[in-house]
Design a protein around this nucleic acid. Sequence first.
DNA 1: CTGAAAGCGCTTACAG
DNA 2: CTGAAAGCGCTTACAG
Lengths: 304, 304
Amino acid sequence: MSPEVLANVTRAIDELHYVPNRMARSLANRQTMAIALVVPEETTRFFGDPYFASIVDGIARALRPSDYVLNLQFASPGALSEKTVRYLLGGNVDGALVVSHHSGNHFLASLGHSLPVVFGGRPLHPDEQPSHYVDVDNVAAADMGTRYLIDQGRQRIATITGSADMPAGIDREAGWQRAMERAGLRTDLVARGDFSMASGARCMRSLLDRSPGLDAVFVASDLMATGAVSVLRERGRAIPSDVAVVGFDDSPVAIGGEVELTTVFQPSVEMGEAMAHMLLAMLRGEEPEPVQIMPTRMVVRESA
Amino acid sequence: MSPEVLANVTRAIDELHYVPNRMARSLANRQTMAIALVVPEETTRFFGDPYFASIVDGIARALRPSDYVLNLQFASPGALSEKTVRYLLGGNVDGALVVSHHSGNHFLASLGHSLPVVFGGRPLHPDEQPSHYVDVDNVAAADMGTRYLIDQGRQRIATITGSADMPAGIDREAGWQRAMERAGLRTDLVARGDFSMASGARCMRSLLDRSPGLDAVFVASDLMATGAVSVLRERGRAIPSDVAVVGFDDSPVAIGGEVELTTVFQPSVEMGEAMAHMLLAMLRGEEPEPVQIMPTRMVVRESA
DNA sequence: CTGAAAGCGCTTACAG
DNA sequence: CTGAAAGCGCTTACAG
């Protein structure tokens, strides 16, 4: 083809608004150019947690320049619907991104056998299979947040944990415990939350009842920390002088509430981007590092 | 085919886990069995507002029993990306659901010409074209919420509005104004928010500065009302005795905060379901009522 | 290197 | 009513 012919054709394509038929292309190609975004969480929780917002934001951002399209698959935490399973396994998508703190879902855990999959957060049973995921070192990060309180001279440091069936919940509690033990402090002030604001408030009340003299609390998410802060104020505790609070995430709620939170930052948006890039690499046939651990850091504001 | 043969084939289908290829079917069919969920909002705002959570929850719920799949299309409020436009117009979806308070987006407004589309909330320019949408009567609902305060004997009633470029923002302000004028009350205490919690706090501060003696405030969303409540408490105002607060939505934040909100309920989940059902009907070739207005009601709790 | 043909896996209109 | 053929709109392997 001569350059002029090419130019003519190109112009015709533009003028006629020609758009290749995706279905026909997929059929011939054996590629769907679609990626499933699997959300094994209650819609309420998914939308209520700014962590997910950032992750999805990062994913959407990373996928924008690509030709891939995102297919939303809501599912309950426990099991995927038959429809979703059929969809994922029926060759309707080229890969899947699973965003959830949760785990213990057998099908999801083994989904990587049938399809390129990247998880947000480490799977709960690492032995189950070598999967691809993006995460932070939650143990080390929680250790850092707790140590920050210890270094301020706090003595009676409680923790409000996340859910016990989520790696992020388990690991952040372990990090708190490690820091406390290393400092020779008591590790009895533990209240189990579920990452929701309401659970943060409930846990704070119970901790205050059990130990009115506590002088600090490490909370496994900013959303829970917000709930804890409002209870502390309700009970007349000054923050941080009476009780110091360290949160986790550095999500928008950290600065939107009554007291600006000192917190452990995790790069949620970048984690979403990293998930998408890892999957994109897999789809290109590359073999990216299966595990990507992102850095965390302390962000000091008012609450501690 | 004899019944036995049929049974054998059916069994074979089950055993071999046969799943019809969606792409091939779409190509032959001229149907994609996909619906676009267009979100012309910043991701942060989308995820931060429980209203959207409920809408999407309702949509997902209504679509679950169907064979349709949801394709997420994030877009900026102002304009859709070329990729999204190509996608929507390129025959990749059978219809679209647009969830946003926003409007003023020309392309979106005329999207209904090329594709079955249902909007969440009335389009800003109703003259532009007769489109399909699900909404509540925001004027009447805000009138009701304001009247509730008036009936309690409140005299100095302010309002915190939503964004001025969203029908929900405009109409709820109009409803407040109508109720106030009918009662012969002054309509000068208006602060313009943007549906975010932070804007609710900011507006409350400015209202209190302008009129320390105000005794009630009608707020166009529960999220903003939450921000307003924390400022009122910060300034030492008792709720509802000093200042009564009425919110809007009856979303989860209405009962998750420091004070349980009295609010105007709108059936967000059902609105999402209604949007999906309307679109499904259109896709079946039916001609559903193009406008569906859902009922609202007062929910009385602590704040007023 | 170019261009016509076969094939992707379905559905549907049509001949028998 | 049944069954074989054509066609959906692309890509790709292959003959020229």
